[in-house]
Nucleic acid binder design. Structure first.
Lengths: 257, 257
DNA sequence: ATATCCGGCTTGTCCGACAAACTATGGGTG
DNA sequence: CACCCATAGTTTGTCGGACAAGCCGGATAT
């Protein structure tokens, strides 16, 4: 009865062996002593070094693997590695689904991130990035009556735009929302007749803005593009306050590193 | 010689038993058949159900645990759970550090996210959220000459602001950048005399804007606040194109779920 | 009725083992 | 001398069993 009343002490941190091993290796990587691409050593070697059993080492490895800090190479050996963005993004998307966020939250966030990506892309895009966008655009123009393909190309367009900004922080912040946001494009294109044409037109204007290095124009067209999405979503009879459905989980399930 | 030339086939996805087990449990949670808080069962029970060894089950559990999908309760039993934002954010921050992103990228991204958070907070903040910000502000006013404390309070202020927006997607997108961005406040307060006062003043204006439900004012003051940070950063003699240092890893290392 | 003890269950770790895949090494062959 | 193949060794993925420590519930003693 009285013990619970006071909380003078923090909970004691009892670390299990496998966590200690994982943290030791993690520190080695974060500190730069193990660089991405370096071999971490065999399980047997790690057992010897840490003085623990192979099962324990393997549990530690599974944890690090999941965090993207180590990876099995083609030869199944263990290498330190850079966490891949795609893995992180799908993980975040998964969390958003489980938390049942609404399309309104998603839209409000995607809006500012996409606009920022367009602005910064206009400032920083190089020729290769613009070429990639042009190629995407050419394909989209061939697929005006194929909603599924169009949705995929739209998603890719925004991803390319984000990469074109050459801002990796922005790119990583944008991707989880994009992963959940753009799959709905397919539904909208199916339900709203003029949706596809408006989409492709907006993309065209965005590419032109990038070529002209006109950040204001890029922001403007992206704002319109995203506003269009919202209108289409509502015209399709959907409610912005619906939670993002579990259906989209399949998009987030892919690529667990 | 000839096998490598053609890549007609995708690489065959050879899934190890522990991955299959992890995926099966993950599906169960994502589909909603296992709800957060539900017990997953004992390791022995999972062994029986999947027909695999306990070591294999444990490796699967380690993976899920790391993803935040399951958690050990106080009784050490296994429960399905919602991935915590803090765990995801620190993971993303860690990735940003390893990718050696620059402060310029960080700043450009934090800028749009913080402004959006302020705007949406002005629209959606409830009384409790504003109270929390007021309390933070009161503490900051008491700590004007304690840079470390002030930096912590600043970081907390922005986190509270983001929560006040009641947009969980935005909150989650913002946090990783914030985690890396705000620790530099301490350095700036030390090096730039008037920094602390300007910071507290900006926070005051932001709180007033929230009370007045004035999104434009909130955006404006946040823009100034973030611009101030950048000026302070440069006055402190730092270069925006420096990569975020590994030093900040300690902030990202915490709370691995 | 309360306090205490005991036995069972569960987890964390350890040990030893084995099949499959891969590597390397050495020998045979043209 | 160069090249190909077989064999042995290494490494991983999985298995079965084992045990100490912690937690829980029930039985027992006061």
């Amino acid at each position: 009865m009285l013990a619970a009343a006071e909380d003078r002490f923090e909970r004691v941190e009892v670390a299990s062996a496998c966590h200690l091993v994982a943290e030791a290796i993690e520190r080695e990587i974060l500190s730069g002593r193990l660089r991405p691409g370096d071999g971490v050593g065999t399980e047997a070697a790690l057992c010897r070094q840490f003085g623990v059993n192979r099962s324990t080492v393997r549990e530690a490895i599974r944890m690090l693997e999941q965090g993207g800090l180590v990876q099995r190479g083609g030869d199944r050996r263990l290498y330190a590695s850079l966490p891949r963005y795609s893995g992180l993004s799908s993980r975040v998307s998964r969390a958003l689904i489980l938390h049942e966020v609404t399309f309104r939250e998603l839209w409000a966030t995607a809006r500012v991130l996409e606009i920022a990506a367009a602005e910064q892309a206009a400032e920083n895009a190089d020729a290769a990035a613009i070429d990639a966008l042009e190629e995407n655009q050419a394909r989209a123009e061939q697929a005006l009556d194929d909603p599924a393909r169009l949705a995929e190309l739209d998603s890719q367009f925004h991803s390319l735009m984000s990469k074109a900004s050459r801002n990796r922080v922005l790119d990583l912040a944008r991707e989880p929302a994009g992963l959940l946001f753009f799959p709905t494009t397919e539904m909208i294109c199916r339900r709203v007749p003029k949706g596809a044409a408006r989409m492709v037109a907006a993309h065209r204007h965005l590419i032109e803005a990038l070529k002209a290095r006109d950040a204001a124009a890029a922001a403007l067209w992206m704002a319109r593009h995203v506003a269009d999405w919202r209108k289409g979503f509502e015209r399709a009879g959907r409610d912005l306050d619906e939670p993002v459905e579990r259906v989209f989980a399949r998009h987030a399930l892919r690529a667990p590193y």
